[in-house]
């Protein structure tokens, strides 16, 4: 589907902007600069404002996703259940550093997903793993490498 086709699915009203951005994000994996201009033109807004909304969001992307997108919750309850060890384990296994994305891997620490009871939580390419412990990390990541 082209960008124009996606945009035509939405009435150009401000309340539909987020939905349109989410649709583009899902179709292409990210919202490129060129697409930003298309959206701006369609909604009659300034392109920097669109870009600001994209970068201010935790879900929308302005760059293509890495091959492996890993997220680990490290706030409050998951932290007290030992999510730091999981972050360390992933860092060691993939030789990366959290919150410093490369084109291959992106390990991001995130806030609560509302699954505190099932914590610690690890999300790999959109799949949520519950009650993760450091020993499980290797097995989980093997499915993706």
């Amino acid at each position: 589907m082209t960008i124009q086709k996606i945009l035509l699915g939405f009435e150009p009203r401000p309340e539909n902007l987020l939905s349109a951005l989410h649709a583009i994000n899902q179709q292409f994996g990210y919202i490129s600069k060129a697409n930003c201009y298309h959206v701006a033109e369609y909604f009659e807004m300034a392109p920097p404002k669109i870009y600001g909304i994209i970068t201010g969001s935790e879900v929308l992307r302005d760059k293509p996703a890495a091959d492996l997108e890993i997220q680990v919750c490290d706030s409050s309850f998951c932290k007290s259940k030992g999510s730091d060890q999981i972050v360390k384990e992933v860092e060691n296994l993939l030789s990366i550093k959290a919150n410093y994305p490369t084109s291959k891997f992106n390990l991001k620490t995130i806030s609560c997903l509302g699954k505190c009871q099932e914590g610690p939580i690890m999300v790999v390419n959109g799949v949520i793993y519950e009650k993760v412990n450091p020993a499980m990390v290797d097995d989980i990541l093997k499915n993706y490498l």
């Binding site: 409050s76 932290k79 620490t109």
Partner: peptide, 12 residues
């Protein structure tokens, strides 16, 4: 550790 978890949350 709990305090650190909270602080991380607020900073992020």
């Amino acid at each position: 550790g709990l305090i650190l978890g909270w602080a991380r949350f607020f900073e992020r």
